[in-house]
């Protein structure tokens, strides 16, 4: 009885998380009917994905997502290093908690509120015009891939801070003292010491941002232009169009991408090292 209770979360996650995701592969080869689908085997959904503009959209959203990862890393990771290195141990978690404040407001409202901030007559343009930095409003920052990238960076940057913070647990403070003692220049400390030690955590954060950049439909939906379509949007559009096998095929492709990335990461850095702080 007690033992069974302990298994409840595992059973629940297996039944309602792992199983539905695994079954997407099966459903993706079902035959599409008018309002639903029926058992069968056809690769029509995959054909529909790979031999259409969808593939192109998917690939370009991958590219934009990668840019977001790099930008978020450049802006976010130094914060994690700073907090670990310079803030007293007991205060570190508090500073990191600051970065969950944005999540206190629904993602959708945050993304939507970027419109008035970024639009032609929006906050950013107004301020820049007032300051005389520009003479014409900038129009490329909304309803363009750039808009999507800005949205992704602003939505997901906290995750690189969290992941980086956890990753820096693997870099003990005395390492910095050794480096100072040896007179290592900053960029060498970063490349030779921090990166290799923190790699698993950084990688996990990067994958998180990359996959969500591909999968969160709201971002291209609200901030992107006509061509901005990512996997999440393809899937939800397919569901709206009652093309369930296509939606399942997109899900399956996303899961394959995710598992592939995690596998590569695990081979490269041994991702189990991330867990050492909680063990």
């Amino acid at each position: 009885m007690g033992k069974a209770l302990f298994l409840a979360p595992i059973v629940f996650m297996t039944l309602f998380f792992a199983l539905p995701l695994a079954l997407t592969v099966v459903w993706s080869v079902f035959e599409r009917t008018m309002f639903w689908m029926e058992p069968g085997f056809t690769l029509f959904a995959y054909e529909n994905f790979f031999f259409s503009a969808r593939l192109e959209n998917f690939l370009s959203s991958m590219w934009h997502s990668s840019i977001s990862v790099v930008v978020a890393f450049i802006f976010g990771f130094p914060v994690a290093v700073f907090v670990r290195r310079r803030i007293p141990q007991v205060a570190q978690h508090r500073v990191i908690l600051l970065f969950i404040l944005p999540f206190m407001v629904s993602e959708i409202i945050r993304i939507f509120a970027l419109r008035p901030v970024l639009q032609r007559t929006g906050l950013v343009n107004n301020v820049l015009l007032e300051l005389g930095v520009i003479t014409e409003p900038i129009t490329v920052i909304l309803y363009t891939p750039l808009g999507v990238i800005i949205g992704e960076v602003l939505s997901f940057l906290p995750f690189i801070v969290f992941a980086g913070f956890l990753a820096m647990e693997a870099v003990p403070k005395y390492i910095f003292e050794i480096c100072d003692d040896l007179g290592a220049p900053r960029h060498r400390v970063f490349i030779d010491v921090i990166l290799p030690l923190a790699a698993p955590g950084i990688f996990a954060g990067a994958v998180f941002i990359f996959v969500n950049g591909l999968g969160v439909a709201l971002l291209p939906n609200i901030l992107g232009g006509p061509g901005a379509v990512n996997a999440g949007l393809i899937a939800t559009q397919a569901i709206a169009a009652l093309d369930f096998p296509l939606a399942m095929a997109v899900s399956a492709i996303m899961m394959t991408t995710l598992l592939g990335l995690l596998y590569i990461g695990h081979r490269l850095f041994d991702l189990t090292r991330i867990l050492s702080p909680i063990n």
Binding site: P20, T24, F208, V211, V216, L233, T236, A238, I239, M254
Partner: peptide
Amino acid sequence: LLLSPLFVPADILGSALLVF
């Protein structure tokens, strides 16, 4: 099993659960 939902985007999991 417990942490991987973090890595599965909302729309993807939502679609899979819907069909499930």
